[in-house]
Simulated assay, not measured.
Amino acid sequence: MNGKIFIGDVSFETREKLEKCRQDSIEYWDDDEFYFVHDEISSELSNECNFYPISHCGGIFIIENDRI
């Protein structure tokens, strides 16, 4: 069975983009929050993981696995 998991959240393609957003929004930034970074997460997943940015600080992860 083929399957997909969709995750939409505050997230970034790279750590550099996260840091730029953090600096640009420092007065609103929540250092206690965890922010997804595609480059870091996709290397940990054995599944196919794609990232689609939808704003400067948000995106959608689509994780595909033929066993889901």
Rank of each mutant, 00 (worst) to 15 (best):
F6Q: 06
Y28P: 11
I26K: 06
K20Q: 06
G8K: 12
E44P: 08
V37Q: 03
G8Q: 12
F34H: 09
Q23T: 12
Y52S: 06
F61T: 04
L45F: 14
I63M: 07
C49P: 09
L18S: 03
I5S: 06
H56K: 13
S43Q: 15
E48D: 10
I7E: 00
Y28N: 15
E64W: 03
F6W: 12
F61D: 06
N65C: 11
E13K: 07
I26R: 07
E64D: 07
Y35H: 10
F34M: 07
M1E: 07
K4Q: 07
F51M: 03
K4N: 09
S55T: 11
I60S: 01
K4W: 08
S55Y: 08
N47M: 14
F12R: 01
L18T: 02
F34R: 12
E48N: 11
E27A: 09
E19S: 10
H38F: 03
S25G: 10
K20A: 02
I68C: 05
V37I: 11
S43I: 14
N50E: 14
F61A: 03
K20L: 04
L18C: 05
F36C: 08
I26C: 06
I54D: 08
G58N: 08
F12N: 00
I7S: 00
G59C: 02
V37W: 02
D32S: 11
I7Y: 01
I63G: 02
S55L: 11
S25D: 13
K4P: 04
D66G: 10
I54Q: 12
S55I: 09
I62K: 03
H38C: 01
I63A: 02
F36P: 02
P53F: 03
H38G: 01
C21N: 14
D31S: 15
K17D: 01
V10P: 01
Y35R: 06
F36Y: 14
R22D: 05
L18Y: 02
S25L: 12
N50C: 13
L18V: 06
I54C: 12
I60N: 01
K4Y: 06
P53W: 04
F6L: 12
S11K: 00
S43T: 14
S11T: 03
